[in-house]
Design a protein around this nucleic acid. Structure first.
Lengths: 210, 210
DNA sequence: AGTAAAAAGTTGCAAATGCAACAAAAACGC
DNA sequence: GCGTTTTTGTTGCATTTGCAACTTTTTACT
């Protein structure tokens, strides 16, 4: 029932059919969008990946969220007044679908097929997003670095139906995702290896428990 | 544009109109639902409040998420395999709207007005949910207890357009929401008071900075 | 009103973590 | 292929935090 919406097929058909939607390609490190309140812009990653970055007054930058294929993003999902500027930056060459949220409520003049498909299909993408956010909260809720790592590994292991799996993030990015210090994470991973909880070979990890 | 959907009015009209939706009342501490994979049940709080609780194998219980008026919840938003059971429990006498997510795709026989209003109105509730989750991730991302507290206070202050505001959670619940030890939080709040960053009087707090 | 339960407040101490400052290895660019 | 940049890996040390164990205050219940 959930996620039976085929966005790939959907996107192939709609591009030419509706004047309220854009498909744009961005090069690596290009700014895809900035979060501007009440613009109600919605974006979907069709190809590539992007980071939502915050630059605070000290000039520190931080990855707030990472978007991969079919992830949906935009200021409309992020009604948080942080006083810092938020940019979405392409991590690699990326294709992005861009439209306005009012497309949900206002039909376009031609009453094109896109609108019906969009209102039917988008909720599933948003559901997936909610689930991803809940997952991250679940991980950030763990009290220790060890718990965060083991929980994260368990999830990857279950996704792959295999005790051995490939990390989908670099270790630097993983520490960032879990909001822990990278060196402290390395220390804990070393302990996990030494104590026999995991085995590690390059970016392949085997979970020895559960 | 966002949130112009009036759920209150909406709910008054629909109850009798559709056989695929239920409105149920729960007493304090009653179990509203448990998260069962692929049941695709969706719930909306009409009145009262509820906690999503996890009970792990050690018998420890934890509040995963709190739901207040017009919050939307259900397993469909929480596709996380935790191996622990998840219950939603009424914190007080509460009225809950319960339906199945397939209502989005399957019209009911009478083709009742409810379905159109639901598909139009629900996305806004979900958007708000996404925003709330992002806010919590923002808070959980802060490195120190101090940063978490100040960020949380800033948000309340901005919501109220006032440096002085009322805490909407008990201190115990706040520590839980921010995933920090309550006594460590109390210690930090004491320091914040002593250093003049905040003033506190009962559940009223005044933010002295920014 | 009286008691039980929950919440707020406090503190010492041990443990976990972040930070800084490196070295080594791998990936990237031209 | 060679230099540069990024990532991985390591460690000592200071700081922050969680935990345990309390007391006091407030709230709820009958």
């Amino acid at each position: 029932m959930k996620n039976n919406f085929n966005i790939e097929k959907f996107c192939q058909n709609l591009i030419s059919s509706c004047d309220k939607i854009q498909e744009k390609t961005f090069e690596k490190n290009e700014i895809i969008t900035t979060y501007i309140v009440n613009r109600n812009q919605v974006c979907i990653v069709l190809e590539g990946s992007a980071d939502l970055m915050r630059y605070d007054f000290n000039g520190n930058q931080m990855v707030v969220e990472r978007f991969n294929k079919f992830d949906i993003f935009g200021e409309i999902f992020y009604q948080i007044n942080t006083n810092n500027e938020l940019f979405v930056i392409a991590k690699e060459k990326s294709k992005i679908l861009i439209f306005n949220y009012d497309i949900f409520e206002k039909r376009c003049k031609k009453n094109c097929k896109f609108h019906e498909e969009l209102t039917l299909g988008l909720p599933n993408l948003v559901l997936t997003k909610v689930s991803d956010l809940n997952l991250r909260i679940e991980l950030l809720s763990k009290k220790t670095i060890r718990d965060k790592l083991i929980s994260y590994f368990k999830i990857l292991s279950e996704k792959n139906f295999n005790k051995t799996f490939t990390l989908d993030l670099s270790l630097t990015d993983l520490a960032d995702y879990l909001r822990i210090d990278r060196s402290a994470m390395m220390r804990e991973m070393k302990l996990l290896k030494e104590e026999g909880f995991i085995k590690k070979n390059g970016d392949k990890i085997t979970l020895m428990i559960m």
